[in-house]
Design a protein around this nucleic acid. Structure first.
Length: 273
DNA sequence: AGCTGGTCCTGATGGC
DNA sequence: TGCCATCAGGACCAGC
């Protein structure tokens, strides 16, 4: 599934090939995504130039002068840039037709979303879906103090605390396990009971894990992502994720799998005290 | 307010 | 071989 690194790679690809280009038409073949695609999606950005492509958490923000197109890839969404549109395939739900080519949205599970935010309604950062998001993990503002401060008094596990996105965004299920392993923190410990020094280690682990994945992904994936078809690089490189019963790469103890809030978590019972 | 569990959906997987 | 049940997962949301 697209985690933050993949979304960031898509963002860069979009910027490279479509920035400055004019959107002429939106073809919606299947509006039933996480929320039904509204009619204004086809109207708001029409005949406008794509000014910038930004990212907030796992949301892509296609910024036009008239507003922003919010795109979330959900679990199985992907965007492909096609100079020539070609035949429409299964789950190809939306086409954004630019002068230079077509940006095609494909999403088998339809957990993704496409939402138009008109500039007249204020800055896109204030959009309800974005307003409550935590700090960007790759920004200079992100460090252990941010996590420490946000976690005081919280009784949920550190894993759930990370996943919730209120403190830091973009740490999905895979990277939560990976980062906690690197920081030597047990996923089940209450967020409010983790010390400041350990949060500093965790923040570094998160930054490192995500940065490495972006670098790796930049060479592994081309241009536009494809979530389907390509081997998930995150899983290929996983230290603990998906490795239940296999020896810890650091200490050889068998990796343990547990379920937290219905999500799988993997950790080393010896390295993560 | 914080926390839990439900929900959407389809492709992959495994048992029979 | 085919069919059916189960599961995975992002993130919002209702209900306590």
């Amino acid at each position: 599934m697209p985690e933050l690194p993949e979304v960031e790679i898509v963002r860069r690809g979009l910027q490279r090939s479509l920035q400055g280009d004019t959107l002429r038409r939106v073809d919606v073949r299947e509006p039933r995504l996480r929320w039904p695609i509204a009619d204004d999606l086809a109207v708001g950005p029409r005949d406008r130039a794509l000014v910038d492509v930004a990212r907030r958490g796992k949301y892509l923000l296609l910024d036009f002068s008239s507003g922003s197109l919010l795109v979330h890839l959900g679990m199985s969404g992907s965007l492909r840039f096609l100079p020539e549109p070609g035949a429409v395939g299964r789950h190809d739900h939306v086409d954004l037709v630019f002068d230079r080519g077509t940006l095609r949205y494909n999403d088998p599970r339809r957990f993704g979303s496409m939402i138009w935010h008109d500039a007249a309604r204020g800055p896109v950062d204030a959009h309800p879906l974005l307003a409550g998001l935590g700090v960007e993990p790759l920004s200079p503002r992100f460090d252990g103090d941010v996590l420490f401060a946000a976690s005081r008094g919280r009784t949920v596990s550190i894993k759930q605390f990370l996943l919730a996105g209120g403190a830091v965004v973009g740490v999905g299920n895979i990277y939560a396990s990976e980062s906690l392993f690197r920081a030597g923190i047990r996923p089940t410990v209450a967020a409010g009971r983790v010390s400041r020094p350990r949060y500093h280690a965790l923040a570094e682990a998160i930054r490192l894990t995500l940065t490495m994945a972006i670098e790796r992904g930049g060479t592994t994936l081309r241009n536009y992502v494809s979530t389907e078809g390509e081997p998930g690089y995150a899983q290929v490189d996983a230290v603990v994720y998906g490795r239940a019963g296999q020896p810890c790469r650091r200490c050889d103890a068998p990796i343990r799998a547990i379920r937290q809030q219905g999500r799988m978590t993997y950790y080393c019972p010896r390295c993560q005290a």
